[in-house]
Design a protein around this nucleic acid. Structure first.
Lengths: 331, 331
DNA sequence: CTGTTAGCGCGTTCAG
DNA sequence: CTGAACGCGCTAACAG
């Protein structure tokens, strides 16, 4: 627990010289530098970052708000964030909010009390329900949705959904079920719009009976499957809004005796690694998860450093991935 | 950005009184309290935690070192950690080290420079390769292995592995493949011992050809499957050391035309949520992941607060979960 | 190039 | 019960 004063004593120079030797070595003579480095070694000095940051009025850390850390898509985004943050000397404070705005508020306090410099929000913004952007709280959305009222980085969810459903229609499907998220989930909203647009473009009327809302978990996919299985006029394909639900759905369909993909096509969204290992492997949309995290961090850093960004949107490209869960419809 | 001085001015009391009103309200008169609270409201005061922590010589944060955040088992442990930490007013700094000791060292620096108070290590300890415990760096292992040289919380990996393999033997298997981790991975070491003990107890000789080493990822499970599939004298069951590899293996076996579980039993380890949704659902060992995290944090907190723990071990119970991937062997 | 001085925001003496 | 004064470890401004 030695401090800068001990170093200065051991080196026989002033405290200021030690400080300069560390942050502006070019302003210190060779001789003094040598003495300082030797002294640092000798007394085992480590600068106290709390003191340094305190002076700098910057915590050099950001908080990442994630609705559910066990969601592999989010986990991957976080890896990207951490990667970028570490390169810039920032640490990442984890806030698993379990979809609770109240918990989010608690983490906001970390930046209000200067324990963190900004917020990277992974939960998409729901007007009237989510944390509203506050001035003086740098915040950016790292895997957001349309109409986010603060800077965001995202993919074109609507377009990606449209592309998937277009593909299913091309494969011959006319009755396409949709396994959505909760009605007010913004990702669900955007993707549902894409689904409807694709249907409309093909002249297929939207049938509300074919929409089942889950919550992006495996379990809700399983539940949804049993609904779909029991329908009198069952769909021939299901567009699921994430891979977890699609995989849950796969199992539900099988245990209902429905063969996938022979009797039912299923698509996912995100392209988590498990999507390649399901049976059958899932046709899905690959989001550039790590990149979303990296770009999200960079955007946040600009905000922290004082740039005015308004509610800039950065839209990154996605990739449509065809696997075996969507063969052409027979008959 | 108001500070305590502004509050004191607005309230017409001294700085010390404001400070006391916040941390020892019982030592302040009713009248003064009211004035202080009103002033805080009025100037929009938020205590500067950096300053407070700086004085307290405590960061009120810990760093969690995780080898791979995309591993669902670790993600769940972290949820437990964060839960416990938040309750005690601590924040969690994330360190995804991607199995690199060098990266771990960088995070150690965070506590050396007082940005964090201690380390919660999720990577099991490999002698001569892992971070060695340093005095003055509070560190605990939250899902450790046997012979960890600092306080640890874990399950009985050897016992759990033995129990799984015993069960396979009971189901009639004599040739049981093992899908291990890398040779120096401590979890692999402990679990391999359990595998061998179970074999020995049943009088089955250990056959090194039946051991394939992966790296706990889906991909390595897939690779291993093709090895197993090509063996002349193929095993009738595979004990995989985690669920991800087991699920990867499942797919590899299927694409090699081997039916699971009819022609091959497969077991996992950890009981991640996907284990219930694979085809067939996996027989596995459920680790109390969140609890490991919670207890790990509590142990670390004791260390931070100055208790001497030596290399205490806390062993938590696991649960053996039988699903459909392990029917009795026919013939 | 170097040392001296003055705080950053807060908690904690110690008198009153 | 209250206030003035000091210092935590460090950096920045200013002289020399």
């Amino acid at each position: 627990m030695s401090n800068i004063r001990e170093v200065s004593r051991a080196a026989g120079v002033s405290i200021a010289t030690v400080s300069r030797a560390l942050s502006n070595p070019e302003k210190v003579s060779e001789a003094a530098l040598k003495k300082v480095y030797a002294a640092i070694e000798k007394v085992g000095y480590r600068p106290n970052m709390m003191a340094r940051n305190f002076r700098a009025v910057r915590a050099y850390s950001i908080v990442v708000l994630v609705p559910n850390l066990s969601n592999l898509f989010f986990a991957t985004v976080i890896r990207g964030i951490e990667d970028a943050a570490q390169q810039k000397g920032y640490s990442v404070l984890l806030g698993d909010t379990r979809d609770s705005t109240a918990r989010e508020e608690e983490y906001i306090r970390l930046v209000e009390t200067r324990q963190a410099d900004g917020i990277l929000q992974l939960r998409p913004h729901t007007p009237g329900k989510s944390l509203e952007p506050k001035v003086a709280i740098p915040m950016v959305s790292a895997c957001g949705c349309e109409n986010t009222p603060y800077p965001s980085v995202r993919i074109d969810n609507t377009g990606a959904a449209r592309e998937i459903v277009d593909y299913l229609i091309d494969q011959g499907h006319r009755r396409i079920g949709v396994l959505s998220g909760l009605v007010d989930n913004p990702h669900a909203v955007d993707r549902l719009r894409g689904y409807k647009e694709a249907l409309a473009a093909a002249g297929i009327p939207f049938d509300p009976d074919l929409q089942i809302n889950g919550d992006f978990t495996l379990g809700s996919g399983l539940m949804a499957a049993s609904h779909f299985a029991r329908m009198k006029d069952r769909p021939t394909a299901i567009f699921s809004m994430n891979d977890e639900m699609a995989i849950g759905c796969l199992q539900g369909l099988k245990s209902a005796g429905i063969k996938v993909p022979e009797e039912m096509s299923v698509t996912g969204f995100d392209d988590i690694e498990f999507a390649r290992y399901s049976d059958p492997p899932l046709t899905t949309v690959a989001q550039p998860a790590e990149e979303l995290g990296r770009v999200g961090f960079q955007t946040l850093l600009e905000l922290i450093e004082g740039k005015e960004l308004g509610n800039t949107e950065t839209v990154l490209p996605y990739e449509f991935v065809v696997r075996k869960s969507t063969p052409p419809l027979k008959g």
